[in-house]
Simulated assay, not measured.
Amino acid sequence: MAELRTEEEQIEAIKNWWKENGRSLLLAIAVAVAAVLGWQGWQKRMEVQATNASITYQELVDAVLALRSAPDVDAQRATAEHLAGTLKGDYSDSGYAVLASLLMAKVNVDNGAFDEALDDLAWVQQNSEQEELKQLALQRSARIRLAQGDAEAARDLLKGGDAGYFTAAYEELLGDVLVALGEIDEARKAYDNALAAATPQAQAVLQMKRDDLAQGDES
């Protein structure tokens, strides 16, 4: 365009360029605007989802706390189960659903509903994006299996996972399971591992467990 000699030629060149490229330019602008508005709309929806999930989780916490003194425990438990189901069904990606499942597992354990608690913990292991929460759910599942008298299943769960973020708790629980199975030497090793990783406050109880073991050949 710099080589055109007159203003009329420049205007004519612009008109011709617009005829050839104007529609494509407008389409590109429209697509860009739609993308921006779509992104903003998505962000807004995510904010609303997160807020609603947070509110629902707080309602669940309140319902669980109310269970301790509720005159109609069954109704209050049904409310808690409904709220937890809502979080898992409508807000499964929020993170609150995982916390809700952990909370309901505790509620079910307190009420002796061990199978329901195991289902809650299995949901955490399948859906949580945080490895530490998966490990926590696995250890709690193993503890429930031990409480049910199925030490073999508890050991299988623990052997299928790893200590991860909870080394002391993992090794202590493994020691408890091995004691139940009569594998005293292996239990002693597990308690030693737990003692090495435990805080000073937790070491006293662990030492008592280890000292209570029947004497055997130490390796």
Rank of each mutant, 00 (worst) to 15 (best):
A187F: 01
E186H: 04
A194F: 04
V179R: 13
Y165W: 12
E183I: 06
L173C: 08
E186C: 02
L178Q: 08
A196T: 14
V177R: 10
A194D: 00
E152C: 09
E186V: 03
R188D: 06
D176K: 03
G160H: 12
A197Y: 01
E186I: 02
G164S: 13
G175Y: 01
L174V: 06
L181Y: 07
A194T: 03
K159I: 15
F166E: 11
G175C: 04
F166S: 11
E152I: 12
R188F: 00
A153G: 12
L178A: 09
K159Q: 15
L173M: 05
T167A: 15
D176R: 01
G175K: 03
A197I: 06
Y170N: 09
L157D: 10
A187H: 02
K189Q: 13
Y191D: 05
A169Q: 10
E186T: 01
L174W: 03
D162P: 04
Y191F: 13
L157N: 07
Y170K: 12
T167M: 14
D156G: 04
D156N: 14
A190M: 04
F166K: 13
I184Q: 07
D176C: 06
A154Y: 06
R188N: 03
E171Q: 15
G164C: 08
G160M: 13
A196V: 12
F166Y: 14
A168C: 07
L195M: 06
D162A: 14
R188A: 09
D185S: 09
L158P: 00
A169H: 05
L195S: 01
G161D: 14
A190V: 07
A194V: 07
A153R: 10
T167C: 06
A153C: 12
Y165E: 15
A187V: 00
V177Q: 11
F166W: 11
L174K: 07
E186A: 08
K189A: 14
A154W: 02
E172D: 15
T167V: 15
G175T: 05
A168Y: 06
G164R: 03
E183F: 02
E171R: 07
R188P: 00
A168T: 11
L174I: 05
F166H: 12
V177P: 06
E171A: 15
A180F: 02
D156H: 11
Y170E: 11
Y191S: 09
D185T: 11
E152Y: 08
N193M: 03
L178C: 06
G182C: 02
E172H: 07
E186R: 08
L178D: 05
Y170F: 14
L173S: 08
G182P: 04
D176G: 10
L178S: 05
L158Y: 10
A194M: 01
A196G: 04
